[in-house]
Design a protein around this nucleic acid. Structure first.
Lengths: 338, 338
DNA sequence: CTGAAAGCGCTAACAA
DNA sequence: TTGTTAGCGCTTTCAG
């Protein structure tokens, strides 16, 4: 490990000077600059990020807290977040909480403010109060993919208009003539997908249609749960011609269930999801869905987090992403005339 | 930010003692221990990881270098790696190189040995020599998912018997009676998937069958490339009854191509992949594939990396994962009698 | 058993 | 323009 002072010695200057030329800070004579650079080159010196961070009083990393990076939605977000972080000279640490509050707490306790200057939270299963606490300890926190733009939380956040997303999905189905729709909500009642569901319900109301509560299933946000729930729904309500899912994973499960029941998507039953994860493009039929601006949200989140860290954040502490857009693929079609 | 010395002051001891209490190191009197703990509690003290790392002369993180975390294979690996790292008190930094050597080099230069004590490399597009250089600078490197157990590289690595994986896939197709098989190799000729292909070829030879070279396509490791190549292959060789793909993504693409051509998988054409990524389970028909022990490999990689860091690694610097296993699902079937 | 002191590698005033 | 001097917060001998 070559250190600053070794470089300094070789260049015949002091470490402060080396530091200065390396960060083009203070004015350094061209002469010495060259000598220093030569010494750096010769010794293959590379700054010690940990030491630098300690001296600067800031951490070199940002953290991204997710329940599991293996959940198909997160990698796309993480990729964009890491890129944005890199563009600002920060590294990204990923924290998988496995939806366990204890794990989340442990992460926050350990890295917030020490190893990481700030934390992006996708879903921590932690109370706002707990998150606030880490914020007060000096490590800003930003909630990503907040579900309701009109009810700003007490923490900085990137919000997606999921109500709108749900409405767009609902309207699409309605416009295709569907009147008997089953709904899959990928969270418990009133949970994280509530807004999407409400958006769908509102779209129905808008069209003068009432969505019977018993045609809704509150399930886990997985392919399997979507599969299971769809089988039940179709068994109970054979008249259904479409499935609205609050997320793509359950939607994909729904498509499989329908196929396994010997029915055809979209000929017999249409399916729509929300998010537009990679799989949506790959499935057959390709899934019609409402795309959420994942990469954009990640970039916004990093920007906001950094501005918070630099205490240069203007008042609006909630930022809303671009509006979710319908991506019409092959899993939806006009209802068949009876 | 509460510091050690603040805690010390409150407890009426010196920071060295607090440090000792916290890391149950030196023997500390029960009396003072209690007082210190009380002070820690009262002040909500949390050790500063960066400072600690600097003092200990080690970095608190490990790095994982991938081309893109959005590639469906990596998240599963990353999840397991992060868990294993956590179990050893380390955090995981993800580095997306986007397959750009420059980016990879930049990462290595910046974090290896300073922010991260070691690096897991999935695929860096860097020469062994370059990697060796960072190793010599004090940051161990381990190659993950090395393709040929019998040709150990000059760097520590976790190897998967991909030759065997290819052979297993080939034998499965052969056992089902397929004699006209198209091959999709997800890398350029002689590239990273060469062993898998060779395994397949050897399985054919074993069965006394020769695989005509023109029935092989060397393509990108993506769904799209698999799709495209399959269409071409089937157009050129209508007699094909099966597709061997060196990876799941092209295999999934193949299934879609076949479906879009109005043929049925597996009735008309069987498809097999290698890896067993999550999508393989979700696709319809579910993909038959040869599972690679992803999580196990990740754990082994972390263990090896840590032992290298602690200089406690025994001589065998290459470790081989469990053998890839056939996972028979719905995309393969016995060839139809003509 | 506890304290004093040096130092990890770097940055940041402040002097010279 | 360059050097000096303190630290950043923690660990770790080595005395007491």
């Amino acid at each position: 490990m070559t250190t600053l002072s070794e470089v300094a010695r070789l260049a015949g200057v002091t470490s402060a000077t080396v530091s200065n030329v390396l960060r083009q800070r203070g004015k350094v004579g061209e002469q010495t600059r060259q000598r220093v650079l030569a010494a750096v080159e010769e010794l293959g010196y590379r700054p010690h990020l940990t030491a630098r961070a300690l001296a600067e009083g800031r951490a070199p990393t940002l953290a991204l807290m997710v329940s599991s990076i293996a959940n198909p939605f997160y990698p796309e977000f993480a990729l964009a977040a890491e890129r944005a972080a890199r563009a600002h000279g920060r590294f990204l640490i990923v924290c998988n909480t496995n939806d366990d509050p204890e794990t989340g707490r442990a992460y926050l306790d350990q890295i917030a403010g020490t190893l990481s200057d700030g934390v992006l939270i996708m879903n921590a299963n932690l109370s706002i109060d707990e998150l606030k606490k880490t914020e007060q300890r000096g490590a800003p926190v930003v909630l990503c993919m907040w579900e309701k733009p009109d009810a700003p939380p007490e923490l900085p956040c990137i919000a997606v208009d999921f109500h709108q997303a749900g409405a767009v999905a609902g309207r699409h189905l309605l416009a295709l003539g569907h009147r008997h729709i089953g709904a899959l909500v990928g969270s418990k009642k009133g949970g994280i997908h509530a807004e999407r569901y409400r958006g769908y319900i509102d779209a129905c109301a808008e069209a003068g249609i009432r969505h019977p509560q018993n045609r809704t299933r509150f399930i886990a946000d997985t392919v399997e749960a979507g599969y299971q729930a769809t089988r039940e729904l179709l068994a109970a309500f054979p008249q259904l011609t479409a499935i609205f899912a609050s997320n793509d994973l359950p939607a994909l499960g729904a498509m499989n269930a329908i196929a396994d029941m010997g029915l055809n998507v979209p000929h017999d039953i249409s399916v729509i999801g929300i998010t537009d994860i990679q799989w949506a493009r790959v499935s057959r039929p390709a899934l019609t869905t409402v795309a959420v601006p994942t990469a954009g949200a990640a970039e916004m989140a990093i920007e906001l987090l950094l501005s918070l860290i630099n205490r240069s954040s203007p008042s609006p502490t909630m930022r809303v992403t671009a509006t979710p857009q319908l991506v019409e693929r092959a899993s939806t079609a006009a209802v068949r005339s009876a």
